[in-house]
């Protein structure tokens, strides 16, 4: 078992952070890589990015939003309990490069994925702007960590309860207009957010990295479930990605494929809410 040694609820319990004991993975992991976890024998293989690692203590950090059955099941796991399987590190690490000025844009739990990349980009000497956003003030995560990893940080909330009222794309556009020296944008968040960020950066001709989250099974390039279209070619996000050049991604296809199991996901989540150890789902195995 891979034990949870620290657990924290964020964004009013909608987002959970776990520090998990996985020394082999912690020793190898680089920013941008992910792991696949299973809670129990009947569980699904769920991909989550490593938000941080502590190789000295042999720990990895995941931060996930509760969106369905499996993440809800993960939420029930307390300190001292754990996952039966943690596989990784998977995927290509972010290619961290000194380019001068960069802008990092994160939305929702995407901020957790963005943070280690932002920190890495700053550590190697880039000037880092960052824009982070959430629906509302109390759903915003990792503000302090992002602040420490940036030279200049902007905050947006959809409802205006904190920072700029509006989308992260507003601030992205504003900054790109103001500073023509920005050479690279990294945008990570929900698909629509990444898609619109790419629209903006394309206007300015700024290279943009995104991190894609298609549905996965094995995470080793064996099944092809995670296929995405980039530059008109089929790529496997689990081995060729998860980061890609954003201007080349076929967003509509990704968006559709993410909805593959909408019906089943609802069945599964409803069953879970009713079950509570009643043997109808995987929660009691």
């Amino acid at each position: 078992m891979f034990e949870i040694v620290e657990r924290q609820e964020m964004a009013q319990g909608t987002i959970i952070s776990n520090w998990i004991k996985a020394p082999k993975i912690a020793a190898k992991a680089k920013p941008g890589q992910f792991v696949i976890l299973r809670a129990n024998e009947k569980g699904e293989r769920i991909p989550l990015t490593m938000a941080d690692t502590d190789p000295a203590k042999g720990l990895i950090n995941i931060i996930y939003m509760v969106v369905g059955k499996s993440t809800a099941l993960f939420k029930t796991l307390q300190v001292g309990q754990g996952y039966i399987d943690v596989i990784g590190p998977l995927g290509q690490p972010t290619h961290l490069e000194k380019v001068g000025k960069v802008i990092c844009v994160g939305g929702g739990t995407g901020i957790a994925v963005l943070h280690p990349i932002t920190r890495g980009l700053k550590q190697i000497g880039n000037f880092v702007y960052s824009v982070i956003g959430a629906r509302s003030k109390d759903l915003l995560i990792l503000e302090d960590k992002m602040k420490a990893a940036s030279d200049e940080m902007m905050i947006c909330t959809d409802d205006g309860t904190y920072g700029h009222k509006g989308f992260v794309t507003d601030k992205l556009k504003e900054t790109l207009e103001k500073d023509k020296d920005i050479k690279l944008a990294v945008c990570i968040g929900p698909v629509p957010m990444m898609k619109f960020c790419c629209k903006v950066t394309k206007e300015f001709g700024v290279k943009t990295l995104v991190s894609l989250n298609p549905i996965m099974v094995d995470g080793t390039g064996m099944c092809g479930c995670c296929r995405v279209k980039v530059e008109g070619k089929m790529q496997f996000a689990c081995v060729d990605g998860p980061e890609f050049e954003g201007h080349e991604v076929d967003w509509d296809e990704l968006d559709l494929r993410l909805r593959s199991y909408m019906v089943e996901e609802k069945v599964s989540y409803d069953q879970f809410k009713e079950c509570h150890g009643g043997g109808k789902c995987s929660c009691c195995s």
Binding site: E264, S268, C281
Partner: peptide
């Protein structure tokens, strides 16, 4: 549209034929 690998892995390894008792659809 599935590759055989995905279809069979979901069904055999992940026991999707026992969904929703098993989580993988």
């Amino acid at each position: 549209v599935y590759s055989a690998n995905e279809y069979l892995t979901r069904s055999n390894l992940m026991k999707a034929y026992e969904f929703p008792v098993y989580d993988t659809p």
